[in-house]
Amino acid sequence: MRAIQPLSVIDLTMAYDDFILQQNISFTVERGDIFIIMGGSGCGKSTLLRHLIGLKPPQKGKIMYADFDFWQADAAEREKILQRSGILYQSGALWSSMTLAENVALPLQRYTVLHPPVVRELVEFKLSLVGLNGFSEYYPSELSGGMRKRAALARAIALDPELLFFDEPSAGLDPVTSRHLDELILELRDSLGATVIMVTHELDSIYSIGTNSVFLDREAKTMLAVGNPKTMAQETENPVVIDFLTRGTGKRPR
């Protein structure tokens, strides 16, 4: 089995037609990292994620999964890599016409040849991992926002992925729920041995679970800092990064 970590991005330029969003982006994600992609609104965090998960080709530069150039590979190879990744979209992106069980079952049906009863049991198990056992027959529209996020997480981990991508997992959740979600992500990372790549601007999450990060800036159109967010907050000299990491107060966390 080919190990797909670490993920590395080499000299990436992201652009919408002529409008350059970010350039000269390079970083490496180590195995077991919780890698945070942060930056102010509109700086291209989500776009970077879309590049990583194969939804938008880069204008320039490479995205390497292990020694494997993601965007040079053909579609089938790319799919093989994505099959080992779980993705949690910003608004959950659960299929609204399917029950939770069907939502979680679809990746399993797509990529494995398990018997339906086994799939059902796996689905129940995944839902119980995120604390949603008993909700398998519910439709996404019947759930609260936090439950929908957790259900989407269950779908993301359906295939025991090695790489987990999160797009603002705690957006729209209350502080307690979002802390629970952080803990859950940590727990799943440790138990599944996965690597997490997360777009977020929740400072609490960034400090409490992030082990490595990259800071993108809209004005500079490039990354301003790379590294562990806690050290970054202590050591960076860049005023924009300090502003962001201290919520504009300039007081560095201890």
Binding site: F125, S128, L129, G131, L132, N133, F135, L184, D190
Partner: peptide, 13 residues
């Protein structure tokens, strides 16, 4: 830890 997590069963069926 995954087993504990799954069997914690916070939600009522």
């Amino acid at each position: 830890s995954l087993l504990t997590l799954a069997r914690k069963s916070t939600s009522r069926p």
